[in-house]
Simulated assay, not measured.
Amino acid sequence: MKQPRHVVIVGFDDAEMLDIACPSDAMDAANRLGAARPYRVELASLGGRPVRCSSGLVLVGQVPLEKVSGPLDTLVVAGGLGHGVAAANGRLLAEVRRLSRASRRIASVCTGAHVLAAAGLLNGRRATTHWSYAGRMAAAYTSVTVDPAPLYIKDGNVYTSAGVTSALDLTLALIEEDNGAELARSVARTLVTYLQRPGNQAQVSVPPAAPLPEHRMVRTVVTYISNHLSSDLSAPTLARVAGVSQRHLTRLFDGHLGTSPARYVRVARTEAAAQLLVQSSLPLTAVARKCGFTSTETLRQAFSDLYATSPSAYRNVNRRSSA
């Protein structure tokens, strides 16, 4: 048997269990389905201490992070509510830096990107994280180009992924890199998940699922947008709603939402259209009109940018999934 691919997942207190389970279980499935080189996955923590997940469940640290030695195939940093404390832990960052030099590739799940950024491993790179933390990450690490839209991003040998279950999309991509598309599809079928969502597909349901921003003025504008999708939502209109200049409104959106007003409106309209496509039988022209698009072609372009698919294909796939 060929030498296993040594994969180390870095855990810490208040990590998200799915951030650890998605990569480990997908790679275990790949082993059972005949990976050319099996994956040997270990959970490492400082001192080898148990990892208390944010759910309250506790995972046993298999190996002290300080005693892990290379070469490693893949180093994965989990995310979770404890990412801020982890990113401020000098000992943890030193070990992540050390192991990054001994790893063929480096990856993070969700807010684990903040740990990679704090370790300096994302400097000059494009990266993603959970959409609700993207603005904070961009403000804290100005040398990183933070893109909150994709499910995962590959920049050189560094991979970052969005929130929680996008770890599965990333891991399927890694399995495909290592073993080919057929094994990745078999793993997806075994796990009863999408055969594979492309990395450039957007993190779904950003405006509808997002909590209202704390800033009163931004919250007012966001609420207005969601209630007036078919109306004029141009920059001058939104600035009048907020009672500020267009420039100041742009700064507020960038600071609190990590995006521009125009981009927010486009995504809100596209996601509303996605819901209508699945929940109704309205023709595409009616969906476009109800959601504020000037034409079906404009809707198609927005759909392609956000979901990497067409409205019709999205409707067909998601209706089958619902059925």
Score class of each variant (00 low, 15 high):
149 A>M: 13
98 R>P: 01
114 H>P: 13
244 V>E: 03
273 A>Y: 03
238 L>T: 00
160 T>G: 02
138 A>P: 02
224 Y>F: 06
277 L>C: 11
32 R>M: 11
241 V>L: 01
106 I>Q: 05
10 V>D: 08
163 G>S: 08
311 P>D: 01
49 R>N: 02
244 V>D: 04
107 A>I: 07
121 L>G: 13
213 P>E: 01
118 A>V: 02
161 S>L: 11
268 A>F: 00
218 V>A: 00
243 G>Q: 06
13 D>Y: 09
177 E>M: 12
174 L>M: 11
87 A>Q: 05
73 D>G: 11
214 E>F: 13
16 E>V: 08
277 L>K: 06
62 Q>N: 09
15 A>C: 08
226 S>E: 15
121 L>Y: 00
260 S>L: 10
92 L>N: 00
230 S>G: 11
67 K>L: 12
158 V>P: 10
222 V>I: 04
49 R>V: 03
293 F>P: 12
232 D>Y: 03
215 H>E: 11
17 M>A: 15
152 Y>K: 13
311 P>N: 02
213 P>R: 02
29 A>W: 07
91 R>D: 10
256 H>L: 08
259 T>V: 06
207 P>T: 07
90 G>W: 05
61 G>I: 06
240 R>S: 10
57 L>M: 14
322 S>V: 10
62 Q>D: 10
323 A>N: 15
180 G>M: 00
312 S>N: 13
283 P>M: 07
115 V>T: 03
250 T>I: 15
185 R>K: 15
254 D>I: 07
245 S>R: 05
169 D>E: 07
294 T>Y: 08
31 N>L: 10
62 Q>P: 08
107 A>R: 03
295 S>Q: 08
26 A>N: 04
119 A>D: 10
75 L>V: 08
135 G>R: 14
190 T>A: 10
255 G>M: 09
109 V>S: 02
303 F>D: 12
304 S>K: 14
23 P>R: 00
25 D>P: 15
162 A>L: 05
170 L>Q: 07
183 L>H: 07
136 R>G: 12
18 L>C: 04
89 N>C: 07
282 L>P: 06
253 F>C: 01
95 E>K: 02
221 V>R: 01
89 N>M: 04
285 T>W: 14
27 M>D: 05
292 G>Y: 02
95 E>Q: 05
173 A>N: 14
57 L>D: 06
11 G>L: 05
67 K>G: 15
83 H>R: 13
308 A>W: 13
306 L>W: 12
242 A>V: 06
51 V>H: 03
122 L>H: 08
130 H>C: 06
139 A>W: 14
300 R>C: 15
128 T>P: 04
297 E>Q: 13
187 V>N: 05
264 Y>C: 12
37 R>G: 08
198 P>H: 05
310 S>T: 14
230 S>W: 11
240 R>F: 09
58 V>P: 13
232 D>K: 02
306 L>T: 14
